[in-house]
């Protein structure tokens, strides 16, 4: 395999917020490289800076120190090369499913015919052709999240950042969407950074699980997941990883690695 250039490079990123009781260090000295086509999960206790890191990569927040490069270009704001999928969907309520999916291409000045063709293709890919003319408030949570994913892919994003995208969904829908996401990822060669609270979800999806620890937020450990897909959540190997990650998450106050 030819070594691909890193799709994402986070170098010594620190993020400080001005809080009511003084400064909050949301993220300290974070280092992270994600190869092109890699699927990385970020996991860690609440408040350890997962969203902050993702939002800095997305360009919604500026790092206080350090730099972020995506596909060898320095990030200095949000851009269509990095699609973001939010836990609360962030669909445009005044647009139909079709127009939500076509929003990116239309925004970037693509012609009508091209927008229509792209939209159609992704509508089919997520299996929502029958709901093309529905508005977001008429969809279930799972359907909304499918639209949110399609909207990012329809916009040619090569890097997809997902912040607990399935966190608000019931277990069955969540599993369905995990499978669908993996299929999409495998067929498109996307680079994915996926934040989750759920250890199992991380092991099921990721090539690598990056464990973060709070107070102040930092990257604790990088755990490769060498299991072949599709993964069997009840296999001994899966369980061993589950135990390893639980231990890391449970005891990270005691030993913050340096």
């Amino acid at each position: 395999m030819t070594p691909l250039p890193d799709a994402i490079r986070v170098q010594a990123v620190t993020k400080r917020y001005a809080g009511p009781g003084g400064e909050v260090v949301a993220l300290r000295d974070a280092q992270l490289s994600v190869a092109g086509g890699e699927f990385v999960c970020l996991i860690g206790a609440s408040g350890c800076g997962k969203s902050t890191l993702l939002r800095i990569i997305a360009g919604f927040e500026a790092a206080s120190e350090g730099r972020v490069e995506v596909r060898e270009r320095r990030v200095d704001g949000p851009g269509p090369d990095r699609g973001m999928v939010f836990q609360d969907y962030g669909l445009f309520p005044w647009l139909t499913v079709r127009r939500n999916i076509g929003f990116g291409p239309a925004s970037r000045g693509k012609g009508r015919a091209e927008v229509a063709a792209t939209t159609e293709r992704f509508l089919q890919m997520i299996g929502l052709s029958a709901f093309a003319d529905a508005y977001p408030h008429q969809l279930s949570g799972g359907m909304k999240q499918r639209v949110a994913i399609a909207r990012v892919l329809a916009n040619d994003a090569r890097v997809v950042l997902m912040d607990e995208p399935f966190g608000a969904l019931d277990a069955m829908t969540r599993e369905r969407l995990q499978d669908e996401l993996l299929a999409l990822w495998a067929s498109t060669g996307l680079t994915v950074v996926f934040v989750t609270h759920a250890i199992e979800e991380a092991i099921f999806l990721a090539d690598r699980v990056v464990v973060m620890s709070p107070g102040p937020g930092q990257i604790l450990r990088d755990v490769p997941i060498p299991l072949a897909r599709p993964r069997d959540v009840s296999s001994p190997e899966f369980n061993a990883l589950r135990r390893e990650l639980s231990a890391l998450l449970g005891s990270n106050h005691a030993r913050v690695a340096r």
């Binding site: 997305a58 360009g59 269509p80 973001m84 939010f86 990116g104």
Partner: peptide
């Protein structure tokens, strides 16, 4: 959130 969504989709 909608501004963020639009910005990441390439809206100037």
């Amino acid at each position: 959130r909608l501004f963020e969504a639009a910005a990441m989709l390439g809206t100037t």
